[in-house]
Simulated assay, not measured.
Amino acid sequence: MESKINRSDYKILIVDDVVSNVLLLKILLTNEKFQVCTANCGNMCIEQAKTEKPDLILLDVMMPDISGFDTAVILKKDPATADIPIIFLTALNNPSDLVHGFQVGANDFLTKPFNKEELVVRVMHQITLVAAKRLIQKQNDELRATINNRDKMYSVIAHDLRSPMASIRMVLNLLVSSMTPEMIGPELFELLDKANKESEDCHDLLDNLLKWTKSQTGRLNVLLQDLDLKDIIPGVVDIFEMIAVTKKIKLQLSGTNAPLVVRADNDMLKTVMRNFISNAIKFSPENSTIEIDMDVEGDFAKISVKDHGVGIAPERIDSIFHKGESTYGTGGEEGSGLGLQLCADFSRKMGGDVRVESVLGEGSVFSVLVPLKK
């Protein structure tokens, strides 16, 4: 780090009421290629610190107007000068003075009379820390700008592509539902059917992407209201009925007969359920059943989606809700992993949580817990 530091980029403020001490330090540090400014008392030091904005202050302890220790206290109280490191110049070297110095904000001590090598080593140590801090700050700023640009890009992609994708999806839905293999030939019908499924997946991904970006950038408001799951979950299941039928999968909804009223965000809850059911269909073999169940667990309503599909390897279970890993369904469908991150994010924003249980080769159960109305 030290070899990369350009000393002429750093300014040192020397503060001592003895003119000969100031001159000696100024000559030594100027020869070492540092920028130097000077002050001859505590009050002048405080003024110089604000106007010159030095990177380091060499501060004499014994001064006639206010002591170096009292000067340091004033510097540390002002946000404009609080972060400037201070090396105290002192003839005192008893432990209580050192302790006091560190209490008022000393970064180091240099005992008079000092030799040139010790001075340079102690100064360079502080300057190296300043340089490292600046580098971290610069990298933080760059990272923040990168994240902002990424979120903006995600939002533009999702927002601008969602509308045309919705139109393509609608047209393909219409074509597939009104055509038969006999009308256009089995090969063309299969291609059309594949395009229809892919347009569904693409639209869902864009929808998730837009919601994820809004959630991450704090532009997604959580609107909690009292909702009866009986009014919401059957509607979500119905949406997937046609898709499930084309893959020869049965959707089976069960649960308590009594009203199950939760305190949740309607859109967020539907998004979680859509992702769970869509994934279950993706990972289920033909002629299997997906069971959607609504139940009560303590202060929460628990909605579970159980499939009899490929299952999840034990080592992946812990990370499935927060790693954007791609996974592949039984029809070769690729999942982005984004949907599950979104489910975890949304359920926690509503004061609930998500769970997964799975046996490799036997199937998985994805559950969302939502607070019951109090």
Rank of each mutant, 00 (worst) to 15 (best):
residue 4 K to C: 08
residue 4 K to Y: 08
residue 8 S to W: 05
residue 11 K to G: 01
residue 11 K to Y: 15
residue 13 L to I: 02
residue 19 V to L: 15
residue 21 N to E: 15
residue 24 L to S: 14
residue 27 I to W: 00
residue 29 L to G: 15
residue 31 N to G: 14
residue 32 E to G: 08
residue 36 V to D: 06
residue 43 N to S: 10
residue 50 K to W: 12
residue 53 K to N: 15
residue 53 K to E: 12
residue 57 I to F: 09
residue 59 L to F: 09
residue 59 L to V: 07
residue 61 V to N: 06
residue 62 M to P: 09
residue 68 G to R: 02
residue 71 T to C: 11
residue 75 L to Y: 05
residue 76 K to V: 10
residue 80 A to V: 03
residue 81 T to Y: 14
residue 90 T to P: 04
residue 95 P to Y: 01
residue 100 H to A: 02
residue 106 A to M: 03
residue 119 L to T: 04
residue 119 L to A: 00
residue 123 V to L: 09
residue 129 L to R: 11
residue 130 V to E: 14
residue 136 I to T: 11
residue 137 Q to C: 04
residue 145 A to N: 10
residue 148 N to D: 15
residue 158 A to E: 07
residue 160 D to R: 07
residue 166 A to C: 07
residue 168 I to W: 00
residue 174 L to C: 15
residue 174 L to D: 14
residue 177 S to M: 10
residue 177 S to F: 00
residue 184 I to G: 00
residue 184 I to N: 05
residue 184 I to T: 05
residue 186 P to I: 08
residue 187 E to V: 03
residue 198 E to L: 13
residue 200 E to W: 05
residue 203 H to T: 03
residue 212 W to P: 00
residue 219 R to L: 12
residue 220 L to F: 03
residue 222 V to H: 08
residue 224 L to N: 06
residue 226 D to C: 02
residue 228 D to V: 05
residue 233 I to H: 12
residue 252 Q to M: 13
residue 253 L to T: 07
residue 256 T to N: 13
residue 257 N to L: 14
residue 258 A to R: 08
residue 263 R to Q: 04
residue 264 A to E: 01
residue 268 M to K: 01
residue 269 L to Y: 00
residue 269 L to Q: 02
residue 270 K to C: 07
residue 274 R to W: 01
residue 280 A to V: 09
residue 284 S to T: 04
residue 285 P to E: 05
residue 286 E to H: 06
residue 289 T to P: 03
residue 291 E to N: 14
residue 292 I to F: 08
residue 294 M to N: 05
residue 298 G to N: 05
residue 299 D to H: 11
residue 302 K to V: 01
residue 304 S to W: 02
residue 304 S to H: 04
residue 305 V to E: 05
residue 323 K to T: 04
residue 323 K to G: 03
residue 334 E to F: 07
residue 337 G to Y: 04
residue 338 L to T: 04
residue 340 L to V: 02
residue 345 D to N: 07
residue 353 D to R: 05
residue 354 V to Y: 03
residue 354 V to P: 01
residue 367 S to I: 01
residue 368 V to R: 01
residue 369 L to P: 03
residue 373 K to H: 10
